[in-house]
């Protein structure tokens, strides 16, 4: 699904990503861990075609990121730190707009169904600007999956969500996984990472320092490896 070779990104004479090699299979759910400023969000932005890599090769589904950006854009759903929603619009209007932008048929029905899925049917027609952070995050999640993407790029999706919303989000990811969706999730929440991911990647200083498979929700293993790599404790 994703093929990354010797990816580097330089900004203002500073190397943010220093040679990342990574290959992800279709249907995998991968958590990306790492300290603040490690370059996790930058990696996702490169995959989301928002920033151009300085060097290296990125292929998604066999398509080159540089050449086939239109096809690639249809494939992924991206959830960044900011919501990407229009303040004056209601959840319904936002989702219908983005649905149409992606060429979703029955955009209206799909939008209503998604708002229901994230548990905000009651606020279907309220403008988003009056929403709380967690509510906005719920709609932002709905926005990122409006076109049923094959690849999910989530940047700290659990921030601001309450327990109910966390389990909604996890269910969304797991049910999409069952349909064969690949998920890449940046997170600081080891518990959620262990809960839904079957592979963990640790990034530090723009380099991939660890990459291992995870079985049986082994939270201890995650914390152990993370401490070993990032905090240098053994």
């Amino acid at each position: 699904m994703i093929e990354i070779k010797k990816l580097t990104k330089q900004a203002d004479n500073k190397l943010i990503l220093r040679g990342i090699d990574l290959s992800i299979e279709k249907g995998e759910t991968v958590a990306i861990l790492g300290p603040n400023g490690a370059g996790k969000s930058t990696l996702l932005k490169v995959l989301a075609t928002l920033i151009k890599p300085s060097s290296g090769l990125v292929k998604i589904n066999g398509l080159d990121l540089k050449k086939n950006h239109l096809e690639i854009k249809k494939l992924f759903g991206y959830l960044p730190h900011s919501s990407l929603l229009y303040d004056h619009y209601s959840p319904l209007e936002n989702l219908v707009f983005f649905g149409k932008l992606y060429g979703v048929t029955n955009a209206e029905e799909r939008a209503i169904e998604l708002v229901k899925e994230v548990g905000l049917s009651f606020f279907l027609n309220e403008p988003v600007k009056n929403f709380s952070r967690g509510m906005i995050q719920r709609i932002a999640i709905a926005r990122s999956i409006v076109h049923e993407p094959e690849l999910l790029l989530l940047d700290e999706p659990h921030t601001g969500l309450d327990q109910g919303a966390i389990s909604i989000l996890n269910n969304v990811i797991l049910s999409m996984k069952a349909k064969g969706t690949t998920t890449l999730m940046v997170t600081h929440d080891f518990k959620q990472a262990a809960e839904i991911c079957d592979r963990i990647i640790i990034i530090k200083n723009g380099k991939l320092v660890d990459d291992f498979k995870l079985e049986d929700r082994a939270l201890n293993l995650v914390s152990e490896k993370y401490q070993l790599q990032v905090e240098g404790v053994s």
């Binding site: 989301a48 075609t49 239109l70 854009k73 992924f76 990407l84 929603l85 229009y86 932008l101 992606y102």
Partner: peptide
């Protein structure tokens, strides 16, 4: 620029 909606347009499949 508000809520980075420009990014939302840029990642959408259009020229």
């Amino acid at each position: 620029q508000r809520n980075d909606t420009m990014q939302g347009l840029l990642i959408a499949p259009m020229d």
